[in-house]
Amino acid sequence: MKLKRYWLVVKPGILFGNLISAAGGFLLAAQGRIDWALMLATLAGLSLVVASGCAFNNCIDSDIDARMARTRTRVLVTGVMSRKAALAHGGVLGIAGFALLWFGANPLAFACALFGFAVYVGVYSLYMKRRSVYGTLVGSLSGAVPPVAGYCAVTGRFDSGALILLCMFSLWQMPHSYAIAIFRLQDYQAARIPVLPVVKGIDRAKQQIVLYILAFAVATVMLAVGGYAGYGYLAVACATSLWWLKMALAGYRQSVDERVWARKVFFFSIITITALSVMMALDGQPHAMGGLVVV
């Protein structure tokens, strides 16, 4: 149990999801020419940084977590783990992760991870989450960092491919997060977190879910239009985006159970982003690496 608490405090589900997207970005850029040492350092470094951010987030949110049914059994809320231990654990993980990225990958991958960590812990967790309806939008930037950092670890530059990945994964976060906020509405109300469904209502959140899925669909297609991914990826991107959009539009039926509907939209969002991460890895296009350099 003593070791288990150190694992639970880093939010394993979030950690695994970010690992898949980071691998997708890395393999998209690698185009089959995989430097295994670089891949190991990049994925391990990013995983440690994400784990560190989650540990710090748990420390910051322990008072909020105590008011929510979904989170009131977390180790810091129940007292199984002390805040001091969690902070120390997060600090060690962060130092190890950033060191791996600096020495094992490149300064750009390190900078991407640092940006994501600063946004998630410093801007989102410490300030925006509790004070603004735009907290979800700010948090979406940090959630998009792992695939971008994975991509930049290979290319050593932030080009149009990295920009598309940033847009894709940021846009995906929005309907994904709003769906959670709808089917967990009572939790967010109890914790007084100003997410869109709480502040503006569920109908407004439904509208935003549809609009963000449309924007996400355009961004996913751009990866193929820009020559970074092939027709197999494009077929999966179109199929998943259209089906996700169909599910979102079903929320406007008068007979719909909004909690059940939102839960379905949420679960399909995970299927969508996982499928796209896999297809990025399998169906990248080598000639695309000459894309427009942004930085």
Score class of each variant (00 low, 15 high):
244 W>D: 05
167 C>H: 08
283 D>C: 04
4 K>E: 03
268 F>D: 00
130 R>M: 04
274 T>R: 12
114 L>D: 06
223 L>Q: 13
130 R>E: 02
191 A>T: 05
133 V>Q: 15
280 M>I: 01
44 A>E: 10
22 A>C: 11
266 F>L: 06
85 A>Y: 02
44 A>Q: 15
176 H>L: 00
198 V>W: 09
16 F>K: 08
137 L>Q: 10
130 R>S: 04
209 I>W: 08
91 G>F: 06
74 R>E: 02
207 Q>W: 10
175 P>F: 01
49 V>D: 13
215 A>K: 13
16 F>I: 07
33 R>G: 02
249 L>N: 06
236 V>G: 11
108 L>E: 04
58 N>W: 00
64 I>T: 05
29 A>R: 10
292 L>D: 02
8 L>K: 14
194 P>W: 00
295 V>Q: 15
14 I>V: 13
123 V>E: 03
41 A>S: 12
73 T>D: 08
157 R>F: 04
232 G>Y: 05
260 V>E: 15
70 R>Y: 03
99 A>C: 06
224 A>F: 14
88 A>D: 10
56 F>S: 00
3 L>N: 14
120 Y>F: 11
101 L>T: 02
28 L>Q: 03
204 R>T: 13
205 A>L: 08
224 A>C: 13
33 R>D: 01
164 I>S: 02
62 S>F: 13
241 S>Q: 12
84 K>I: 03
241 S>M: 05
61 D>P: 13
227 G>D: 04
32 G>D: 02
230 G>R: 09
12 P>T: 03
267 F>T: 10
208 Q>H: 04
279 M>V: 09
250 A>V: 06
149 A>F: 15
179 A>F: 10
267 F>I: 09
157 R>L: 07
103 F>R: 14
107 P>V: 05
182 I>K: 11
55 A>K: 06
287 H>T: 10
100 L>S: 10
79 G>Q: 10
71 T>W: 14
283 D>R: 07
171 L>W: 13
118 A>F: 07
152 C>Q: 08
291 G>L: 01
7 W>H: 10
10 V>L: 11
119 V>Y: 09
128 M>T: 02
2 K>V: 00
116 G>R: 05
191 A>D: 11
160 S>M: 02
96 A>V: 01
52 S>A: 11
281 A>V: 00
229 A>K: 12
19 L>T: 03
26 F>M: 08
239 A>Q: 10
282 L>Q: 05
99 A>P: 05
156 G>W: 01
289 M>A: 09
159 D>R: 01
63 D>Y: 01
121 V>K: 02
163 L>T: 03
110 F>P: 04
233 Y>E: 05
153 A>Y: 01
147 P>M: 14
136 T>H: 15
140 S>A: 14
103 F>V: 12
13 G>I: 08
119 V>N: 09
83 R>A: 04
111 A>P: 04
104 G>A: 12
4 K>G: 00
162 A>F: 09
92 V>W: 07
118 A>H: 09
83 R>G: 00
101 L>N: 07
165 L>R: 14
274 T>D: 07
51 A>E: 02
118 A>Y: 11
208 Q>I: 02
215 A>H: 12
